[in-house]
Design a protein around this nucleic acid. Structure first.
Length: 418
DNA sequence: TCTGGGGTCCTAGGACCC
DNA sequence: TCTGGGGTCCTAGGACCC
């Protein structure tokens, strides 16, 4: 059996943890630039506001209904997610962190009764609420697709819901196809054309037809609805691409401002590349005037460009320069740009040697520098570290066999030890 | 009427997820 | 005036090769 645990209105609940006075009151969280609503708790949903609503359109309603509105704080949410995961790990030997607020827990033994699963689920729910302050729901079923479905239905069952083979078909019959994991709006529409509306008919669909209609993924979904595990645990050690993008609140008409943004978001992307101890071989940028309504199509323009780097690297200046150099190739005057995107591609784990060089003009005390080394080894894994007065560059120079190269030319970039 | 066949690699685009 | 920011997987089709 697989246990699926999911934080309720995760972002909104995170904010409530630090504002106990908001318990039971409506809470909403906004995207970057306070553009749209990305999370709502149950009380906020009841006011009629929906996820994805532009904030400027519903600002008055929010004020009128006394909804507490927050700008998003992803660092906080990630920290809370970490604490929750550490509790999950006490329960299951094997965990898949599917997203920031969702995990699959895989259990070894299968001798548990239905009641045992309810006990485990309820205990888990209580502990997470008591120790972290996050309300969660739990679904238990033989496959990931069914576990997610049971989780969704758990809200009407006190927060914990366990599979029962005698109850599954009536449950599926009451479930719309589109709510099944892996069936989005497009596939739901195609299924409807074939007269398949509820999840029970989807379960009984022929595998041949499922594959023809919804690719191999649809095949897997149908198998999973029949209780046959088909979607493996995903073990991810690195991302395939790293994207850093933003929609601006104002239109940008000139190259320098756009270039500033490209540099900034390229730096963010490289930061994440290093965090996963990887290097990349290519970078691309994309700029767009994309607007959502009432715009003259003649004013729309978007373009992207791609560059292969001379070598595998995680060296910020090289990657940032490459991204910046692409800009003149895609920029056209006369357009007001609304969004940019920087993507790092061809990512592979780094296993080469790196040098860290400190500019001598910064006059760093050797003792301070040594204490930073501890932090570096914690971040980048073990390796032999040598510290010496640099010969070639006349500064402090550190050589070590990095698991990943840590390139920097500024002392303040080095993580500090407290 | 007639057009070789079999393979790989790469890319764009669609669909999905949170 | 103001509409998010990440990701993944699959497939078709073109380029290229022998």
């Amino acid at each position: 059996m697989i246990l699926h645990a999911d934080g309720n209105s995760f972002y909104a609940s995170c904010e409530q943890i630090f504002r106990p006075d908001l318990r039971g009151k409506p809470v909403a969280v906004l995207s970057n630039n306070d553009g749209v609503i990305i999370a709502l708790n149950k009380e906020a949903k009841a006011t009629g506001i929906r996820r994805g609503d532009p904030y400027f359109k519903v600002r008055d309603i929010c004020a009128g209904k006394k909804i507490a509105v927050f700008s998003s704080n992803y660092t906080l949410y990630a920290d809370i997610a970490r604490r929750i995961t550490s509790i999950y790990m006490e329960y299951a030997p094997d965990i898949e962190e599917y997203s920031i607020d969702e995990s699959f827990l895989f259990f070894d033994q299968c001798s548990f009764t239905k009641q045992d699963w309810y006990d485990i689920g309820r205990e888990l729910k209580q502990r997470i609420y008591k120790e972290v302050g996050m309300p969660i729901c739990v679904g238990v079923a033989p496959t990931k697709t069914l576990a997610k479905l049971y989780n969704k239905k758990a809200k009407e069952h006190g927060g914990v819901f366990v599979y029962d083979k005698d109850e599954i078909d009536p449950l599926l019959e009451k479930t719309d196809c589109g709510t099944i994991w892996g069936v989005g709006p497009a596939r739901a529409a195609r299924l409807r054309q074939r007269g398949i509306r509820n999840a029970l008919s989807l379960k009984h669909m022929s595998l041949y037809e499922a594959k023809k209609l919804m690719t191999i993924q649809g095949f897997a979904t149908v198998q999973e609805l029949n209780g046959i595990p088909c979607i493996d645990k995903i073990i991810r050690t690195k991302k395939d691409v790293i994207t850093s993008s933003r929609q601006f609140s104002k239109r940008i008409y000139d190259i320098p401002t756009l270039e500033c943004a490209i540099v900034q978001y390229a730096e963010l992307a490289v930061e994440r590349l290093r965090q996963q101890a990887c290097e990349c071989k290519a970078v691309s940028i994309y700029i767009s005037t994309c607007n959502y309504y009432s715009d003259n199509p003649d004013e729309q323009y978007s373009n992207g460009a791609f560059a292969t780097l001379p070598r595998m690297t995680s060296y910020t200046p090289d990657i940032v320069d490459a991204a910046r150099t692409l800009l003149p190739r895609v920029f056209r005057y006369g357009y007001g740009y609304k969004s940019i995107m920087v993507t790092l591609m061809d990512i592979t784990p780094a296993a080469c040697q790196g040098n860290l060089w400190i500019d001598p003009r910064e006059d760093i005390k050797k003792r301070d520098f040594m204490s930073s080394l501890d932090a570096i080894s914690q971040s980048y894994g073990r390796g032999a570290i040598t510290l010496a007065k640099g010969f070639e560059r006349q500064g402090w120079e550190m050589r070590r066999s990095f698991l990943s190269p840590c390139w920097t030319t500024r002392y303040q970039d080095i993580p500090k030890v407290h």
